[in-house]
Design a protein around this nucleic acid. Structure first.
Lengths: 207, 207, 207, 207
DNA sequence: GATGAATGAGGTTTCATTCAT
DNA sequence: AATGAATGAAACCTCATTCAT
């Protein structure tokens, strides 16, 4: 009975936290870190400003938590996507598919994420960007492993170091997704991941 | 002699403007738009705050001018790079080379630019990001034209629409450059542009 | 007991507001709208500048509130003065008496008010002056009604339209009060309102 | 020849000064002292800002000069109005007429003047208002003299001290003029000064 | 534990004035 | 004498954060 209570407390606290982060994501994604005030977040989350500060130490802390949790979820989905299938080519297809789904379903965060990871992250003093980049590089290594195995299996030609292939594939996927997401009518979203993969799979030069 | 005076004034005014923009670029690139105060810029540029406001209407105006002028210069260099050589393949090589040079020589701005164009631009109300994206898309069209001509000349295989090829190439170049520039020791900057181009030129799949 | 709390809060808030307005009145009356800073008001009222902005939206808002509330109180006193007695002549006497009392007890505001209503009000964008003038005209109509009734009762001769009589009486009262208040020794304040009223009541021309 | 040059210089300087004051009057009357910048005045007068400061020591100085000169002209007109006719009643009629003309032809300044003389003058530190009031009182004395003479002549009944009569007349004239000038259609401007004077001339009480 | 009133540092911007040309 | 570029003090206002209730 006694250790049930703290559990309820904790569950309650967690729900609070989720609601705050949800409100913050909406606002940050819409207006940017510096154009959102803590009061705004508190109001949208329907808590008092003081309550916000019982959960997060300060605005920066809240932002970091938000970005990291979103990244966790994003990364988990991608990792699962490349772990499930056996076949290397199929892993890559799955990767393209799942990344596309995530982009579509969470565009606001994608923007925030790209600003943080690709561009300069100016929102936060202590390099959130650096932490994110490290995780990103780690993920690239996993992707590279797929190419490496594919090369070992003789299913993929070694036209460049596996890590480079991973970098290239990832960047191209991002670029196409951004394209599609910005002008959906001009660049319709391709259900078939091969539309992207083929660019790599087929050689470009005439011979 | 008399019409030298206005010219001297103008030259002086221009030099002033350049110094202000240079100071601003350094600061914005280091700390981000919202973490730099006009006083800071004035101090770094060694002018009084009021003088800043005789040249730029307000902070936003200064920022826009900065980004647009840097973009102009960046774009001009790239356009020249793909116009000079006759041969399509050589154009692409030149493009990779020049873009790399620019990245290396102006990394601070690159960060700012990526934050504005790829990520979410929350700094400026009246979509600077949109203007930049439009110019970026226009440039991609020029790049696509090279592929198109290469295809006509039978030097390039049509494995995807030219515009898609342009998008893919550009994003891969960016990705590699960022990689190299972030960890120069682990990913040394390749003098040979083919290190990148080959990823496209050679088909990936084993046949 | 529980609904005492919000009431206490409100009372507290109201007291705060009154203190702020009092400090502002003193300063505005002494130095004028543009020569008083929000910091000054905050300091005099012994609040932090931010607290000022939790009560009033901005400087203009504070000023308007100040002027309007003082006017309300002033107007209420005058209205009561002309409503209480039955007799028309007595109404006028009361009016002169009460206006004089108000002038004497709140000279700083009188200045502010005259600057706003008679002179050019350049302090506030959205014509506070216009609103005040409308209220002033409305009050003049009430005054005119007294003359009208007096004329009907045959106690007052109709030497001019009642509204004109009201305008004239009011302006003369103001003029004498200003005179007396500026040089109290040379123009001692007359306890007897007839000292003013007689100028109207007795014909000036010899026959 | 030598003392012609300084004279031309002086004439030139005077013309400059007049143009500056004219521009300043327009602007001050339209927007108020604190909402007009020295740059604005310089631009409207078509001089460089520095030139403004060769003629006037500072903004306050310029404003004082402006108000004083306008007052001079206003006062001179009124003085002449009450000096020309022989007859006292005619003097008063002339006074009402001329003051009305002046109001009509220079409303912008009237506002400025009323703000300065009646209301609180907050624009200027060293009491411009005081100087103006002294002149105003002096003028009232002249007006009082007319009443005094009229009383001696038995043309005017002594219903109050002459100075009081002067104060009363002057304030009523101002009040009516303001009324007429603010709502010209509702309170048309009376060509006949007796419309105002009669209020004083005829006794109000029925007997 | 939750609240939200109060705080005040610090941001952007204006504008009267100076002074080298 | 006339100019106007340069100055910087000082204004208004916001908002992250605290702490008494």
């Amino acid at each position: 009975m006694k250790n049930e209570k703290p559990s309820r407390r904790q569950r309650e606290k967690l729900r609070q936290r989720q609601e705050m982060l949800a409100a913050a994501l909406d606002l940050f994604a819409e207006k940017g870190y510096h154009n959102v005030s803590m009061h705004e977040i508190a109001e949208k989350a329907e808590f008092a400003i003081g309550t916000l500060y019982t959960v997060f130490q300060n605005k920066e802390d809240l932002y970091k938590a938000l970005v990291l949790e979103e990244c966790d979820s994003f990364e988990a989905a991608l990792v699962q996507a490349i772990e499930t299938p056996e076949d290397e080519i199929e892993k890559l297809r799955n990767y393209v598919r799942v990344k596309g789904d995530r982009f579509r379903s969470n565009l606001p965060f994608i923007r925030l994420f790209l600003a943080e990871s690709k561009g300069a992250s100016f929102n936060i003093r202590a390099g959130l960007d650096e932490a994110l980049r490290k995780r990103y590089y780690a993920f690239l290594e996993r992707l590279a492993l797929i190419f490496e195995n594919g090369i070992k299996n003789r299913r993929i030609r070694k036209i460049a170091p596996p890590y480079h292939l991973a970098v290239a594939l990832d960047s191209v996927v991002d670029a196409f997704l951004l394209l599609w997401l910005e002008a959906p009518e001009r660049h319709p979203y391709p259900e078939d991941p091969d539309a992207i993969l083929d660019i790599f799979f087929k050689g470009l030069l005439d011979r």
